[in-house]
């Protein structure tokens, strides 16, 4: 079902998720684009990251935010994200699968604002990033 107005949304709806690409190629280009390209391998080389005491090369935290905003945008072509707040609970490893969760927790049909709870989990079902988003949808 396409989401065109706030009236199309039901409380508790889980947004369809996509499988984010966490490959080293993607994490490296993201880090470069946001000015973190001098991380001495932190985002693009597992061995170099391990030498820094990390478990491996990482997915930049704000790239996780990017995955969450993409989830919202794919769910509704007219959704406007007004605010998104993410807590980086633990590192996300590059080259490892992530599962996105997003559920509608509040709906204001007068203003068109909805609230979402969102998570990024690893393949052990451990939450790495969680957060909330406030999204505006048309009222008619």
């Amino acid at each position: 079902m396409s989401i065109n107005t706030v009236h199309d949304v039901e409380f508790g709806t889980e947004l369809p998720a996509f499988s984010p690409d966490t490959s080293l190629a993607r994490t490296a280009e993201f880090a470069q684009a946001v000015g973190w390209g001098n991380g001495r391998g932190r985002f693009d080389n597992h061995e170099a990251a391990k030498k820094q005491g990390l478990p491996g090369a990482l997915v930049p935290g704000i790239m996780g935010m990017g995955f969450l905003t993409t989830t919202i945008h794919q769910w509704s072509a007219v959704a406007q994200i007004e605010q998104i707040d993410t807590v980086f609970r633990a590192p996300m490893l590059a080259d490892a699968p992530l599962t996105i969760g997003a559920v509608v927790t509040d709906i204001d049909e007068e203003t068109g604002l909805i609230e979402l709870d969102m998570t990024l989990k690893n393949d052990l079902d451990e939450t790495r990033v969680f957060g909330t988003a406030r999204v505006r949808l048309p009222t008619e």
Binding site: T27, M63, H73
Partner: peptide, 15 residues
């Protein structure tokens, strides 16, 4: 522009 496009692509953004 190129950095906006790269961040969008790496995030899976299609809008």
């Amino acid at each position: 522009t190129e950095n906006i496009l790269t961040v969008a692509r790496a995030s899976g953004e299609t809008r």
